[in-house]
Nucleic acid binder design. Structure first.
Lengths: 139, 139
DNA sequence: GTTTGAATTTAGAATTAGTCTAAATTCATT
DNA sequence: AATGAATTTAGACTAATTCTAAATTCAAAC
């Protein structure tokens, strides 16, 4: 009886396409959307398709190599930072920045107690005005 | 020179349609989507259109009468509770519950300091497994 | 009480973000 | 070289929401 590959265990096949997507995310310090990533990946690998970018993003996310951030507004953004951290979203220009609030991690058990949920993760987002927008004439 | 209405100041015109939408949200203790609200509103006001439900939701939100909750997944949910509070989202059944974590409100200044943003609001979400799903055979 | 026009509602088209499908390609293993 | 599982591709499809243009409502001015 012949033996075929039964793998599919994540982290295995970092294809050219997946690698290109990962590079794109790692080389930027902002938080690109799938579309931004598609455009940048296309420059590295001109034939890459939109669907592949989405497939790659799912793969990389499941492999723990990138982090997906979803707000209700518009498209998901992707983040090379995979450790737990918090986000601040500018209500004027949409800029998204990472920061870490050590206290936030500690809230997980309090939140679990209050909500009666079995906790998996806590997500804290600050909405406000970023330094750039504040400077630009609208205090 | 004739004087026409220059109002448009929010909170003014609670039309039949807007009132119906508000009633629907107030009478439920879960967090319906726009589509849920449309279906329920249709029972009260059979001619109401989808677009009007969306328009009404925007109006009510701006008037501070309802609260919109957006996660990246699927549709926005609407909440009759407009005071600051936190959310827990079940990763298995999608149930969304409100709870209040008094400590969360205090994080706003710490978060502002870290991120250098001018703070407007903090949003804390716990992801995990709700009591019902935990009970149902998957500890 | 009729006219007026701004605001609102309606129905359906349009848009956006993302997923699905089926055929073609890749590539490690036999 | 042959095989077939995994991946990629292009484009069709879906879901949520917004937009558009015509019809309706309604308070204010006459």
């Amino acid at each position: 009886m012949r033996q075929y590959r039964t793998t599919a265990g994540s982290g295995e096949k970092l294809t050219r396409q997946r690698e290109a997507v990962l590079q794109v995310i790692r080389e930027r310090e902002d938080h690109p959307t799938a579309n931004d990533i598609f455009e940048a990946a296309r420059r590295r690998l001109p034939g890459i398709s939109y669907a592949t970018v989405y497939n790659s993003l799912r793969f990389l996310k499941e492999a723990g190599l990138v982090h997906e951030i979803k707000f209700g507004d518009g498209a998901s953004r992707y983040d090379r930072e995979t450790d737990r951290h918090d986000h601040a979203l500018c209500t004027q220009c949409g800029k998204l920045v990472d920061f870490d609030l050590p206290q936030a991690a500690a809230l997980i058990s309090a939140a679990a107690r209050r909500s009666k949920f079995k906790a998996e993760s806590v997500h804290l987002t600050l909405k406000g005005v970023c330094p750039d927008c504040r400077e630009t004439r609208n205090l």
